[in-house]
Structures are given as C-alpha cells and as structure tokens.
C-alpha cells in the first residue's frame, strides 16, 4: 500500500487533504443546546421529558452505530482511498460532536428514568435485565471511548497533514472493522433488553 494518501483518483484529479475543522463549531452549538435541553428535562423530572431524551438519544445512538457499522462501513471499505479520505474528513468531525451528546443524554436520562420508575432496586423483578444493560453500556463505552475515539482523532489529525501516512490511517481504520461486530452485538442486546424492560 502506498504510504501517501495524496494520490491520483481514477479521474486523475488529486485528492485535497488538510484544511478541515476537526471539531465543527456549528455542531458544538447544536450539541450544547441539546445538552441544555437535557438538563431542563432532568430538572423538571417529568416522566415524558426524561423518557423522551432516553428513548430518542438511545435510538439514535443504536441506529447510527448499526448503520455506520454495517451499511456505511462496508461501502467505505470498497471505495478507493482518495474517496475514503474525502468522505472521512467530512463525516468523522460530525461524529466527534454527535455521538458524545447522544451518549451522555441516553445515560443521564436513563439513570434518572430507572431510579424514578424503581428499576434500580434489587427487588425489581427484572433487575437482572437492568444489570445486563449496565454491562452492555460498559462494553460499548470501552470500545467507543477507549478504542474508536482515539483512532478517530488520530486519523483526523493525520488527514490534516500535507502528506498523510496512508499505512497509519489504514491500520487505525481497521479498529472500526474489528470492533463493528462487538458494537453491533451490544446494540442488538440493547434493543432486546430495552424492549423487554419497556413491556415488563
């Protein structure tokens, strides 16, 4: 594999690298507004508002994870490297802002909802499912924060260089492929647990 991503595309036009923002400011403003609304919902402690943030954020988190892992990922893997670079430098900065906002809203609202509904007490008949959801979230957190986010940011910083190291980018991007199965399994487990709890 070439060590440089500044390669000619099939059409012969060079790929432009660098010159993009790793953290998009407009996205940060939207994420901040979302988190502010979450705080208001938590302070109001109304069932609908807390449930709204938990369900909407959790559904988006699960949906995005599965869609990216099993639809976007395989398509991206078959594209030529210059096309992957162009896609990644537009797509990944948005994920840097979207995913943490969704994750914090899901977890914070979920904890309050579980406490409010009495799901956290050991005497709750389906307490085992609640503990299972903690384990699933724990695995997802380690994969997302400990493995994927460092790789994501390292790739973005590499792509900003005038001559990015293609081998390094390829090695780091493989983490997304290796963990897609784990993430997918955990997200499907989340769907099973949450629908089980919602109908208990």
């Amino acid at each position: 594999m070439s060590s440089e991503l500044v390669a000619e595309s099939k059409a012969g036009s060079p790929v432009q690298v660098g010159g993009f923002s790793i953290v998009p400011i407009p996205g940060l403003i939207i994420a901040a507004a979302y988190v502010a609304a979450l705080v208001v919902a938590l302070l109001s402690n109304t069932l609908w508002a807390v449930d709204f943030f938990h369900v909407v954020s959790g559904a988006l988190w699960t949906g995005i994870d599965l869609f990216v892992g099993f639809v976007i990922g395989p398509i991206l893997g078959k594209l030529p490297i210059p096309a992957r670079v162009e896609f990644s430098k537009r797509f990944m900065p948005k994920m840097v802002v979207i995913m943490p906002a969704l994750v914090v809203a899901t977890l914070a609202a979920g904890f309050q909802l579980a406490l409010q509904q009495g799901y956290l007490v050991a005497s709750f008949p389906d307490h085992g499912w609640i503990v299972a959801s903690f384990v699933v979230v724990g695995v997802l957190a380690v994969v997302a924060i400990g493995i994927l986010e460092p790789a994501n940011l390292a790739v973005l910083f590499e792509l900003r260089k005038p001559q990015p190291n293609g081998e390094l980018v390829a090695v780091l991007m493989k983490r997304f492929i290796y963990t897609a199965g784990v993430t997918g399994a955990m997200q499907i487990a989340t769907l099973v647990i949450m629908t089980r709890l919602a109908t208990a």
């Binding site: 705080v39 938590l42 302070l43 994750v103 914090v104 977890l107 914070a108 904890f111």
Partner: peptide, 11 residues
C-alpha cells in the same frame, strides 16, 4: 459528560 452524570447522581 462526567459533570452531567455527577449532576444526575447528586440530583
């Protein structure tokens, strides 16, 4: 992120 979680725990 942690501040939000800590806030929920205290709240």
């Amino acid at each position: 992120i942690s501040g939000m979680l800590e806030f929920v725990f205290i709240y």
